[in-house]
Design a protein around this nucleic acid. Structure first.
Lengths: 194, 194
DNA sequence: TTCATTATTTGCCAAATGGCAAAAGTTTTT
DNA sequence: AAAAACTTTTGCCATTTGGCAAATAATGAA
């Protein structure tokens, strides 16, 4: 089954960063491909060169990797109305060191490298829009991670609950614990204490 | 006293991200202003709209802010051959929430908004170069912060020592402790334990 | 140099978190 | 439904880190 998707969210999101006329909007819509992921599916994998960028219409994904100790670490979660990609590997065309995985069923709008190049060559403001989006997303990640170091684990958990109210109990404890920088048992105890 | 600065570091850095001919290089050099900061001086302050971007020729700065508890938090350190600015406030022309402070005596090459606009309008590849630099710097910050959450304080301290071997004992304990996400006493004890 | 100020270390104890393994609970498979 | 596999909770105790205040050390001013 393929869900019908208007792509309005995508277009409205792009319009926040620059003007687009109807012709350009139609082109963008034609270049986007709907991709449905089931919970647990990978959008991209470590070791492979990412070939696509996704706009999340619906659902939540996480970016994770294995550290030197072999622990799986969730680097961050990305939710609806955001783009997701390992930006570094994508731009440099080098194998990624991260996995991008659906933590809920997801509806994505996917752009291939070729599509993005076409859009870049056709739409005069495209590169500027993409740069602003990229920069904003990265600044947000820094601003989110930075204060986490100064907070205790309980506070970090409560902040997560605020951001993703109905996710905490629907994903494996391990995803969340590694994101918060604590062990599963500690997270379990923190949950109990609330 | 004004130190003589060749600006070679700056030019070489820029050339990593895109080509520039001699005429463009000369223009960039003319637009850059040398600024010397003494240890402790502020390059930009919270509450003010940043008017300049700096390339660090020599020295180390830190970006810090006050959190909701009133604690001063060092968000990150920036060292030689990097640009420093509160990118978000600078681009949006909104008051910064952060201070940028010299933690050692510094020699900076400073670009005003007007200079950057001139460069952007004159040098065809300028925007692309700046975007790549911005993106790379932000990706590095995320990749540095993210694993810190999973490490214990001692490891974080040792990693800092590796990155800034001769800085740890030349800056106030408080700068470093808040960056590492621990108290001053804990950092003091960690030091002793090494 | 001496005094005053500021920064760092230390002691003491409490709170938070980790490590490990067993128990309890869930989900999936057969 | 029973068994197997996996996830989460819990107990026990060790280690890490925090909070606070006093002691010590370092820095800067008079």
């Amino acid at each position: 089954m393929t869900t019908f998707v208007t792509m309005d969210n995508l277009i409205n999101y792009l319009l926040e960063f620059g003007q687009l006329n109807q012709q350009q909007i139609d082109l963008i819509k034609r270049k986007a491909q709907v991709l449905e992921l089931k919970k647990g599916d990978y959008f991209s994998e470590a070791g492979k060169i990412p070939k696509q960028v996704a706009f999340i219409e619906e659902g939540i994904l996480r970016v994770c990797y294995y550290n030197s100790k072999g622990d799986e670490i969730t680097k961050y979660f990305v939710d609806e109305n955001n783009f997701v990609v390992d930006i570094n590997s994508f731009n440099q065309k080098i194998p990624s060191s991260e996995y991008v995985q659906a933590v809920t069923d997801c509806t994505l709008l996917v752009f291939s490298i070729e599509s993005l190049n076409d859009l870049s060559n056709t739409i005069i403001l495209w590169d500027g829009i993409i740069n602003k989006i990229t920069e904003k997303a990265l600044v947000e990640k820094v601003n989110k991670l930075s204060p986490m170091l100064a907070e205790d684990a309980k506070t970090r958990y409560l902040n997560f609950l605020e951001k993703f109210p109905n996710l905490a109990n629907r994903i494996p404890l391990s995803y969340l614990a590694s994101y918060l920088g604590i062990t599963q048992s500690s997270l379990s105890r923190i949950r109990k204490s609330i």
